[in-house]
């Protein structure tokens, strides 16, 4: 082969970085998800600067003001006010903190729990695997919403309680996916080689297995984060979620729902916000999977 031929081969085959960049910018879902999430994160961080009012300030004399796109809307309250006269824009802005906090914290708790169980089961197999499979099956058989409601009712609702309960309930998918991913990686030659030269199990898991199952982990993490946010909203809707006057989007939908026929924006705004956030997280997860492992799409 001549040097010229090598050069043209290089030109025909773009570098991995270029490939990755192309995949990212060619993936509309991923881009949309990333932009929305970046915007939401910025909103959460800058909430005190962005929000025109304290989200807890109530003024009964200025309740249920229409948002700006109605004829009688006022610029003082662009998204109107809620049933206690609190500025809706400020509550929506602060609400993203609650949803992100719940989604993130729940995902961390369930992720650590589920990944640990899944990796251990997949790596050691045998009896350990049987015990953990049993745990997963038991957890799956418990109806999540029902158990979460019952526990919140027993302990009393608060942000910490909701996060802990959801975290302790939503680890199953992590465990299932991590278990099979670990099994696949473990069967590969280089893991067998590492074992042969006497590496410890902990070392093999951290250096050989974890990097190889990271993609799957991220995808599950995004799905579960979205799941947690929706579940919190459902719990709050049933009156057993986080505590008022916390501006949680789920709670805002619940509190606005009596107005849904007459002042529909009270549930539309937080509902759309919730929908956008969950959609963005899901699209981001799908996108990461497609970009890092395009051959596995669906």
């Amino acid at each position: 082969m001549t040097a010229e031929a090598l050069d043209s081969a290089k030109i025909l085959e773009p570098s991995p970085v270029t490939q990755l960049r192309r995949r990212i910018f060619g993936h509309a879902g991923f881009l949309f998800g990333a932009i929305v999430i970046a915007a939401m994160l910025a909103m959460a961080l800058l909430a005190p600067l962005l929000a025109p009012y304290d989200p807890y300030d109530q003024d009964l004399a200025r309740r249920v003001i229409n948002p700006i796109w109605h004829d009688d809307g006022k610029w003082a309250h662009p998204l109107g006010t809620d049933q206690l006269g609190r500025d809706y824009l400020s509550r929506v802005i602060y609400g993203v903190r609650i949803s992100l906090l719940i989604g993130f914290a729940t995902m961390i708790i369930s992720g650590v729990l589920g990944t640990a169980l899944g990796v251990v089961a997949g790596y050691f197999g045998g009896r350990v695997d049987m015990v953990i499979t049993f745990l997963i099956t038991t957890r799956l058989s418990m109806p999540v919403v029902l158990v979460a409601l019952a526990v919140v009712a027993l302990v009393g609702g608060s942000l910490t309680v909701v996060i802990s309960v959801l975290g302790l309930l939503l680890w199953d998918r992590f465990a299932v996916v991590m278990r099979s991913a670990t099994m696949q990686v473990r069967a590969l030659d280089y893991v067998a080689a590492a074992q042969a030269i006497g590496c410890s199990a902990a070392r093999i898991v951290t250096t050989e297995i974890m990097p190889n199952i990271l993609n799957a982990l991220i995808v599950v993490a995004t799905l579960e984060m979205a799941h947690a946010i929706l579940l919190e909203a459902a719990l709050s809707f049933l009156g057993l979620g986080v505590q008022p006057p916390l501006p949680s989007w789920g709670l805002m939908v619940a509190e606005g729902k009596e107005y849904m026929f007459f002042s529909p924006w009270l549930i539309t705004i937080p509902g759309v916000a919730l929908f956008l956030l969950v959609l963005a997280i899901n699209l981001l997860g799908d996108g990461i999977r497609d970009i890092t492992a395009p051959e596995n799409r669906n």
Partner: peptide, 11 residues
């Protein structure tokens, strides 16, 4: 009347 109690909580 949950909103009324929430108004009390707000006060």
């Amino acid at each position: 009347e949950r909103p009324w109690t929430e108004a009390v909580i707000g006060d």
